[in-house]
Each structure stands twice: as C-alpha cells, then as structure tokens.
Design a binder for these strands. Structure first.
Length: 423
DNA sequence: TCTGGGGTCCTAGGACCC
DNA sequence: TCTGGGGTCCTAGGACCC
C-alpha cells in the first residue's frame, strides 16, 4: 500500500520570525510582500482579526493599528535558510521525499505502513519543533490529495494535535464530508464555481461524482482528482525534480518609473539576478523575454503592456550578452509618456550548459565569458551579494527599482553580523 | 499615495513532416 | 469523383499551485 505524508509548516514566514523573537508568540503578526505591499503570511491571531491573505497594507491600516498587529517585511534569506533546515531534518525520516514548496514536503512512507504512522508523524513534528523551532502539521493518507486533506484537518483540530493519519481510517468519510470542495488540492476558484453549481459542495461528493462528467469539463486532471480522492494514487513523490523550464525575474516598483534610463537599470538588474540563477542551475537560455507594464489598478493613468521575445543565436547564461539583448528589446517596446509600475525578464528554451548547440559563424569569445561569469559568481558568493555588479544596473541609492523593505528582521542565520547575542 | 512574485501542467489549434 | 494515418513542435490561453 502506498502511504504519503505531507509536512506543512504553520504560517511559515510568521513562524520563522517568531523563532528569533519569541515575544511574538500568541500575538497577531503579519509578513508583507515586496515593497511592503500585501499581506503574504498571517499568524492565527492576525487571521482572527479578519486580515485576509493578499490584502494591501493600506487597506487594513486601521486593523493593524487597533489590533496591535506586528508587521514585518519579508526576509527571504531567513525563510530560505529555515526551509533548508527543515528539509534536511525531514530527509532523515524517509528514503524518498519531494520538496514541494518553501514550507511543504511530501514524504513517501510506504515502507512504514506497518508501523504506527500517527506516532511516526508525532516524532517528525517534535523533532522539527525541537531542532528548528518551527511548528508543523502533518497529514498522512493513501494519496497526495488525501494527505493534503488530512493535513488541513490536523492544523484545524485541537484533538489531532498537528498530526492526522487517515490511512484505512473509518474517519476518512467524515474528513471528506468536512472538507469544502474549494479546499481540495487542485480545485481553484473557477472549478469551485462549476462544482457548486452542480451541487457538489464537499470533498466526499466530489469523490462520488461521475468521473466522465468531470473529465469532460476538466480534462485528465478531473479524473485524477476523483481517483486520488478514492484512494488510488495518480501522483508519486518526485524526489528528483526535473530541471527548470523557465526563470522569471520581475518586480513592481515602489514609485512609477517613466524614463527609458530608469527602466534600463531595472531590466539590467533583473537580468543579472536571472543569469546568476541560470548559472547556478547549470543552464543556458535560448529565449529571452522583456516586458513592462503600467499600473493595472490606476483609474487615471493610461494602461500599457508590452513584451518582446528575443531568440538568441546561441543559448547563453552570460550576463553581459543577455543584458545587451534585453536592452535592445526594452528599447523596442518602450513608449514615452507612460508611468511604468512593473518590468521583468523571462528566460526560456533552457538547455544544459554542457549541451549548447554552437553556431559555426559565432564570433563571440564564449570561453572567456564563462570564466568571467564564474569569477563574478565566486566573488559575490564569498564577499557578499552584489559586491561586483554591472554599472548599467545603477549604483547604490540611485537605484529607483530596488524594492523597499522597511520592517525587515535581521538575517540571523545567514549573516555573521546579524548573529544573535546571548548574555 | 500605497495593490507580490514565481512556477507547473493541460488543451486546442496551426504549421509542418513522412 | 474519390483525399489516410500518424506524428512533432510551437504558441496562446486557461487553470492551478505556493
């Protein structure tokens, strides 16, 4: 029998902040997106105050004030490192796991099916709490979709204490009945509407739906959904993630940018970030996309959105080369007179750096470019991020495109200067 | 005034191949 | 007059996930 567990960190970003500032326990806490724009994580206390995920901060200013809500900018260095620690611990508990997102992992527990799975789950939960300081919830069942449902209930129920094992359990019927159809993994807003219109409101009804009806509406995903709810595993634990199919780097600006020069600095900055990611993955991109847009929420400013796709003569991860194509692309789509709110670059058509198709008439010295990039990367890795950067990305505080994070906590685990002192 | 960022998979249709 | 069968690749759009 196959057994899947999903381990999900509770209110992950908020919990990471709490580890290093325990006074935040039992207090309403939120973490914000880039430029301190929207709420991306909430503590249970903040949820109880009615703060919705994705709310723009300015719209909930009064709740923050009256509720005494602690507000943090996102600290990706901290969250990334904490995530890494959690995953490392989880790997001790199973021969096969899949890191599903920054705060979730699927574990294959099939070989433990004759054990006390609930007890095993509790051991996992306790170990993460003790070694990393983070609270997690764990759901265990015959399929990934059922495990997700178990995990959701484990989080909600006092009695479950954070771990719920539904394998072969008589409670499975009840668990499915208690789960609204929109809370099923793979059912989004669109399908919720369709399902509810057809009288399907909970997971149990969805499981007992005519599979063909769903298949027609929803394609193969529909049949898989029903099968998974019935306990027939359609998805496995993907322990070796296939290499990336694309890399996107884009940010909203704190204030609208208007000149080509300012936008160029932003695009150069994004290309630098993206190209570094490419090299880290050992990939080269064949296709580069540059895009820009004005504020889609504005009722006054005219809207403009455009993108340019560039097919590169030879797949590359060389920042200099990518910058020159990106700047050309940007010039083509830039129109003066607009107030731009966001720009970005995308790399597609990925190939491994060892399998790049060369061009007979290529005149570029690619060997030295590779050496230059690896030197650049190693300097930035050892001395610190952006120690060496392209001047066309702008310098220091003149960089208008850099995101603002006014309420960021310290990088406790990734920067020696920020190490906690105990006295 | 202020509204995030980064992904995946599936499908349908068109162009093209033998 | 009759016009097969089996593919691939690419693109755009939709839906979903965290």
């Amino acid at each position: 029998m196959s057994v899947f567990a999903i381990v999900d960190c509770n209110n992950f970003y908020v919990s990471c902040e709490r580890v290093f500032y325990p006074e935040l326990e039992r207090k309403p806490v939120v973490v914000l997106s880039n430029n301190d724009g929207c709420v991306v994580a909430r503590s249970n206390e903040a949820k109880a105050l009615g703060i919705r995920l994705g709310s723009p901060v300015f719209k909930i200013a009064d709740i923050i004030e009256s509720g005494g809500v602690y507000v943090y900018s996102s600290n990706y260095a901290l969250y990334g490192d904490m995530s890494h620690r959690v995953m490392k611990l989880l790997a001790e508990f199973t021969p096969d796991m899949e890191v599903y997102s920054i705060d979730e992992a699927f574990l294959d527990l099939s070989c433990f099916s004759h054990y006390d799975l609930n007890g095993y789950g509790i051991r996992i939960k306790d170990r993460i709490r003790r070694c990393v300081g983070l609270p997690v919830a764990i759901g265990i069942a015959e399929t990934k979709t059922l495990a997700k449902i178990a995990c959701r209930l484990a989080k909600k129920s006092e009695k479950a204490g954070g771990v719920l094992d539904l394998t072969g359990s008589p409670y499975q019927e009840m668990a499915l009945s208690m789960t609204d159809v929109e809370d099923v993994w793979g059912v989004g807003r669109r399908y919720t509407k369709f399902l509810r219109r057809n009288g399907i409101t909970n997971a149990r009804q969805l499981r007992d739906t005519d599979e063909n009806m769903l298949r027609e509406k929803y394609g193969v995903l529909g049949s898989r959904l029903v099968q998974e709810l019935k306990g027939v595993a359609c998805y496995t634990v993907e322990s070796c993630p296939s290499s990336k199919k694309g890399i996107t780097v884009s940010r909203s600006f704190r204030y609208p940018l208007e000149t080509l020069g300012d936008l160029e600095e932003a695009v150069v900055g994004y290309v630098s970030i993206g190209a570094e990611k490419l090299r880290k993955e050992g990939l080269c991109a064949e296709i580069l996309v540059v895009f820009l847009m004005t504020n889609r929420f504005s009722k006054i400013d005219p809207l403009y959105y455009n993108l340019e796709t560039v097919r590169l003569p030879v797949a590359t991860s060389d920042t200099s080369e990518l910058i020159s194509y990106a700047r050309k692309g940007l010039k083509n789509i830039y129109r003066s007179g607009y107030r731009y709110k966001k720009a970005g670059v995308m790399f597609n058509g990925m190939v491994s750096e060892d399998w790049v198709q060369r061009d007979l008439f290529d005149t570029r010295d690619r060997k030295s470019a590779v050496r230059l990039m690896s030197t650049l990367d190693s300097i930035n890795r050892t001395i610190g991020k952006d120690s060496v950067q392209y001047a066309t990305a702008g310098l220091g505080n003149t960089q208008k495109w850099k995101t603002v994070r006014k309420r960021k906590s310290r990088s406790y685990t990734t920067n020696w200067e920020h190490l906690l002192e105990v006295s």
